[in-house]
Design a protein around this nucleic acid. Structure first.
Length: 392
RNA sequence: GCCGGGUUCGUCUAGUCGGCCUAGGACGUAAGAUUUUCAUUCUUAAAAUCAGGGGUUCGAAUCCCCUACCCGGUACCA
């Protein structure tokens, strides 16, 4: 066989063990029965191959691609049993699936070329073949080709559901769970990669997916993974969750930071902050000031908003905030706004200065909502602190 | 090389039997609005001569052929 292979290579042809060549090879077809027996008995190593019929069109009915036809002359007699006595995947696979009464074989497109062999194998055994569906491949976001785990960590997104430590290489591959993707978001995103129900709906619950999904609606071409779209899905799913449902993500962060908290307080914070989150991990960066008073103030924001006499104005506002027996957010808001207008203060400058004292920078949720959560005493404390820091 | 599969906005896609497609939606991008800030949100816009070329037809993204490109397979791997 080696000789034949070399000969073929010399002629720039690919040698193939098939109907046209097998009769010129040393095998049980060309050897006499006695000779074959003798060699077997002597323990000579051998393999068992599948003998394709000559010049026969083999039809594979694929649920996604329709009828795929290939002529048996183009196929080579695949090894079924290796010389170590072990079956190859092809044999093992169909025996397995048959004994397990598998009805549908759904696998990646890279298996399409070996589907004819499998069909013929079922036929040879006299077994009914299952339905086949060859799925399009997931492609890497940049360029072409199959998505691999290397691409994920190269481009900053996970390809594994869970973080994985390779025990051999010690290599760590990031996981969707650890990165902060919600399971439902990942399922939703993956379902839509290569499949589409034909409507304009994009957000699906698992139940909806189960009901709507059909193999016929799967597209034939490979789909590139999109990091932006994955993030968008995650953001959408975070919005759909209640603060209570999201709580575990954040208690974990609080514990890691070693910050003690009241659960009710945390829930209120989650409610106002979740709309700004794509990943739970962004929580501290967005909401840390609800738990720890700022110690530094954005120099840039101060420069822009803090004017001459701001400290004095802030103290006036604090007094306005302190007027209620029990803080009334709406009333306090109206009072402050009225006062600012009546005195013709620069609204943006004053309120942002107050904000800088509370948050540390000109960012964050609506001002009075924050004061409401933080409480007026804490607001005064922080405001006095920023006045002292800026005006000495 | 050979065989198989694929090819609609930058990306994911709708488009099932040709006419309702002046090719729709979403992500992303841009601009505006809202917001005292940032983010969110909302509105609008740009974005595919349907890979290219031939047919068939009154009419094609949709049917046929050719070409190009991409992907996969071509192992005693799965």
């Amino acid at each position: 066989m080696d000789a034949k292979r070399k000969e073929a290579e010399a002629q720039k042809k690919t040698f193939q063990y098939d109907a046209s060549t097998r009769m010129s090879m040393v095998n049980s077809l060309t050897l006499s029965a006695e000779e074959t027996e003798k060699r077997l008995a002597s323990g000579e190593p051998f393999v068992v191959r599948f003998k394709y019929p000559a010049d026969t069109d083999i039809h594979v009915h694929d649920l996604i691609r329709g009828e795929v036809v290939i002529n048996s002359n183009l196929l080579d007699d695949k090894v079924l049993y290796k010389s170590d006595g072990m079956p190859t995947y092809h044999l093992a696979n169909i025996v397995d699936d048959h004994t397990m009464k598998i009805t549908h074989v759904i696998r990646g497109e890279e298996w399409l070329p070996s589907a004819p062999l499998h069909v013929m194998l079922y036929k040879a055994f006299g077994w009914e073949a299952p339905q086949f569906a060859h799925l399009p491949l997931l492609l890497k976001p940049d360029g072409n080709g199959k998505l691999s785990k290397r691409d994920g960590d190269r481009l900053g997104f996970p390809v594994f559901p869970l973080e994985w430590h390779d025990p051999k290489s010690g290599e760590v591959s990031s996981g969707y769970r650890e990165t902060g993707y919600l399971p439902e978001a990942v399922v939703n995103m993956l379902a839509l990669l290569g499949w589409n129900p034909g409507t304009e709906q994009e957000i699906f619950s698992l139940d909806e997916l189960v009901n709507l999904f059909s193999l016929e609606k799967i597209s034939k071409s490979g789909a590139k993974f999109s990091l932006d779209k994955a993030k968008w899905f995650n953001h959408e799913y975070i919005q759909m969750k209640s603060a209570q449902e999201l709580l575990p993500y954040f208690t974990k962060i609080m514990d890691e930071k070693g910050i003690s908290y009241e659960e009710d307080y945390l829930l209120k914070v989650i409610d106002v902050i979740k709309e700004r989150l794509t990943f739970p991990s962004e929580f501290w960066e967005q909401a840390g000031f609800f738990f720890v008073a700022p110690t530094e103030y954005s120099a840039q924001d101060l420069k822009k908003r803090w004017k001459e006499g701001t400290g004095e104005k802030l103290r006036v506002i604090l007094q306005l905030l302190e007027q209620d027996e029990v803080f009334d957010m709406q009333a306090a808001h109206d009072r402050v706004m009225e006062h600012i207008k009546a005195n013709e203060w620069n609204m943006g400058a004053v309120l942002n200065s107050l904000r800088i004292g509370i948050v540390g920078a000109a960012r964050g949720p609506e001002l009075f909502t924050m004061i409401n959560i933080l409480g007026v005493p804490e607001t005064r404390k922080r405001t006095e602190a920023v006045i002292a820091a800026v005006e000495g």
